[in-house]
């Protein structure tokens, strides 16, 4: 991992927050339909459920429940962790409704369907400006509370 003091920038803008406090959880940027109240990730102006135009911007919970997962026995390319032999992939249900498919942090035997997961940021690499380029992933919740 790079030094905590490095500035963090998203690998792609518009999908998640980067809290100033490195120990705080990031949040996914979602939408809520003003007509039917359905929540979505990522942001979208038109509701996929009732087709109304004009969803409002919201931030989504950073914790959810693991719906399913797998562990891929191939290295994750472009990751700086050369020691990483494989990686978890999972689908996490947020309390607002959206199901998020993402890479999971942890080893082959660290996951169980139904467990609480928490969003975190992973540093992919440093850019030319010396900033940490980060992406989101989920890890098992440390305190078990959703």
């Amino acid at each position: 991992m790079s030094e905590a003091s490095a500035e963090r920038v998203p690998v792609e803008a518009g999908f998640f927050t980067i809290p100033d406090d490195p120990s705080a959880s990031p949040q996914l940027l979602g939408s809520k339909c003003v007509e039917c109240g359905e929540y979505f990730f990522p942001r979208r102006p038109i509701c996929a459920r009732c087709l109304a135009h004009g969803c409002e911007d919201v931030t989504l919970s950073s914790r959810g429940t693991l719906f399913t997962y797998t562990y891929v026995h191939f290295p994750l390319m472009n990751s700086q962790r050369a020691d990483h032999g494989g990686y978890g992939v999972g689908q996490v249900d947020l309390p607002e409704g959206p199901r998020i498919q993402a890479v999971l942090s942890g080893g082959e035997n660290d996951f169980q369907i139904g467990m609480e997961m928490e969003l975190e940021l992973e540093t992919l690499r440093q850019n030319k400006q010396g900033q940490d380029v980060v992406i989101y992933r989920f890890r098992p919740s440390t305190d078990g509370e959703a």
């Binding site: 999908f15 979505f40 990730f41 990522p42 409704g97 199901r99 998020i100």
Partner: peptide, 10 residues
């Protein structure tokens, strides 16, 4: 569409 639909990623 139904609730829990995945939009992002492959």
């Amino acid at each position: 569409y139904s609730r829990g639909h995945i939009f992002m990623g492959p």
